[in-house]
């Protein structure tokens, strides 16, 4: 099994006769390609380029100074902790949910998948709002939390919860189709050979889905580190304490500290680029792995 790679110079492409009924006149092709490239360049490439251009506008020295700032470091640390928490929780959930959905039959499966997808279609601001309504001073659990001197909102737990909500679907989404495709044959074989449930999971299921797991974790992590709307509502913007990197970008930008704002933004942009590169590589692995299910 080889993955069809698109090379401009592949013989099939060159050999294709000019009167191929499945293509358009050359002029039309050129116009469409130009439109596509032009649109993507203006709307996607330029914004990426300007992030780095602005970050380095006053030289690499100013860039490094901005990143070494205590507030910046605090934001980076908080972002890493929040992402680790949310990714960990959602990894666990994603595995369990995908396992339940793919390996067992029960009614209401479609509904369950729709519910798992729900956070994708809810405005991030509303995702934050629901936790304010639950844990805020006037919220459902607010008085109880206050009585026990527990702070959820405007503190780490609130930020982690909102981030977990927003990134909820990623791992489950990556695993459900993969595990459904693989079916239950291998697990049944393992069990019939005397393996225990856990052994089957770690020795049979997990190796089969490892690329899918990595894929889900990757996207989950990117979103967790970059989440803005939901976190902005629950964070309270306590400087040096509850500001994640995206929130710090906003604050610095509004204070006209453009180099500092774009320096932090450039870290997040690099995270996005690395995520995309890793995703492209994983896409290829998943393509190669998929047709194995005889």
């Amino acid at each position: 099994m080889t993955v069809p790679r698109a090379h401009a110079s592949s013989p099939a492409e060159i050999a294709r006769p000019t009167h191929d009924p499945r293509t358009e006149p050359k002029a039309v092709r050129i116009v469409l390609i130009t439109l596509a490239i032009g649109f993507l360049s203006i709307f996607v490439v330029l914004p990426l380029v300007i992030v780095f251009a602005q970050a380095f506008a006053k030289g690499i020295g100013a860039y490094l100074v901005a990143l070494a700032d205590a507030e910046a470091l605090a934001a980076i640390r908080l972002t890493l902790f929040v992402a680790a928490t949310s990714v960990g929780l959602n990894l666990l959930f994603g595995l369990v949910a995908a396992w339940a959905i793919a390996k067992f039959d029960f009614g209401g499966k479609t509904l369950l998948i729709t519910l798992i997808d729900l956070p994708f279609s809810v405005s991030p601001v509303i995702s934050g709002l629901v936790f304010v309504l639950l844990f805020g001073a006037q919220g459902f659990f607010g008085p109880w939390l206050q009585a026990h001197h527990l702070q959820v909102l405007f503190a780490f737990p609130g930020i982690a919860l909102a981030t977990t909500f927003v990134t909820f679907p990623f791992v489950a989404r990556a695993l459900i189709p993969l595990m459904q495709e693989q079916g239950t044959q291998e697990e049944e074989a393992a069990i019939s050979l005397g393996a225990s449930g856990l052994q089957t999971f770690f020795r049979v299921t997990l190796p089969n889905i490892k690329w899918g797991v990595l894929y889900g974790v990757l996207l989950c992590n990117a979103r967790a580190m970059g989440e803005f709307g939901a976190v902005s509502v629950v964070s309270g913007h306590v400087r040096g304490e509850t500001n994640t990197m995206p929130l710090l970008v906003e604050i610095l930008y509004n204070e006209y500290q453009f180099v500092a704002a774009f320096a932090i933004a450039s870290l997040l942009a690099m995270l996005a680029l690395i995520t995309l590169i890793a995703k492209t590589v994983l896409d290829r692995h998943l393509d190669e792995g998929a047709p194995r299910g005889h």
């Binding site: 993507l40 914004p47 992030v51 803005f228 709307g229 929130l247």
Partner: peptide, 23 residues
């Protein structure tokens, strides 16, 4: 360009916001 299509998905929204604004 195929890979670039996903950038708006991967780029944190606040970064996109400040980038588009200065653009």
């Amino acid at each position: 360009f195929d890979a670039i299509v996903d950038v708006p998905f991967a780029l944190p929204t606040a970064v996109a916001g400040v980038a588009l604004t200065s653009l």
